[in-house]
Simulated scan of single mutants.
Amino acid sequence: MGLGDKISNKAQEVAGQAKEKLGDATDNERLQAEGIKDQAAARAKQAGEHVKDAAKDVTDK
């Protein structure tokens, strides 16, 4: 996984956490859900990148 991808995915995850917490604090269910969705999307991207890295490691050996 490239460093840029790692940073981008982590930033999306952190932004999602912030949205979720803000939604919790303001009783805004839409904002909470959006934050949870953003976090899930970031984690899915990270998982995909890990699979790519693992496949590359296998083919390199």
Rank of each mutant, 00 (worst) to 15 (best):
Q32H: 11
G35L: 06
D27T: 11
K19L: 15
E34Q: 10
V14K: 09
T26L: 12
K6H: 14
G35T: 02
D38W: 00
A15L: 14
A41F: 05
Q39I: 01
D24A: 03
I36L: 11
A42T: 04
D27Y: 06
K21L: 09
Q39W: 00
E34F: 01
K21Q: 13
A25E: 04
N28Y: 02
A18D: 07
D27F: 08
D38E: 12
Q17K: 09
E29N: 11
K19A: 10
N9A: 14
K6Y: 13
G35E: 09
K6L: 15
R43M: 12
E34V: 02
N28V: 02
E13H: 14
A42L: 01
A33F: 07
D38L: 08
E13F: 08
A33V: 05
A41P: 06
K19R: 10
I7A: 12
K6S: 15
K6V: 14
R43P: 07
K6M: 15
K37Q: 12
A11R: 05
G23T: 01
A42R: 00
N9W: 08
K10Y: 09
A41S: 15
G16W: 01
E20M: 11
E29K: 15
K10H: 10
L22D: 06
S8F: 09
G16R: 03
G16M: 05
A42K: 00
A18Q: 02
N9M: 09
E29R: 09
Q12F: 00
A25F: 02
A33T: 14
E20S: 11
L31R: 07
I7F: 07
E13K: 07
L31Q: 10
I36F: 07
D24F: 00
G16V: 01
K10V: 10
A18K: 09
S8N: 14
L22V: 10
K21M: 11
R30P: 01
K21W: 03
E20C: 06
N28W: 00
N9V: 04
A41G: 06
L31D: 04
E29M: 13
Q32Y: 03
D27S: 15
K21S: 05
L22W: 01
A42N: 02
A25G: 11
G35I: 03
A42Q: 01
D27K: 15
Q39Y: 01
G35W: 02
S8D: 11
I7N: 07
V14S: 05
K10Q: 11
E13N: 08
N28H: 12
Q39K: 15
N28P: 08
D38M: 13
E29P: 04
E34G: 00
Q32F: 03
A40Y: 03
Q39C: 02
A25N: 11
K6D: 15
I7G: 02
Q17A: 12
K10T: 14
D27L: 11
L22C: 03
N28T: 03
D24I: 03
A11L: 12
K37P: 05
K37V: 07
A11W: 02
S8T: 13
I7T: 09
A15W: 04
R43G: 08
R30E: 15
A25P: 00
Q32D: 06
N28E: 09
K6W: 13
A33K: 11
S8Y: 12
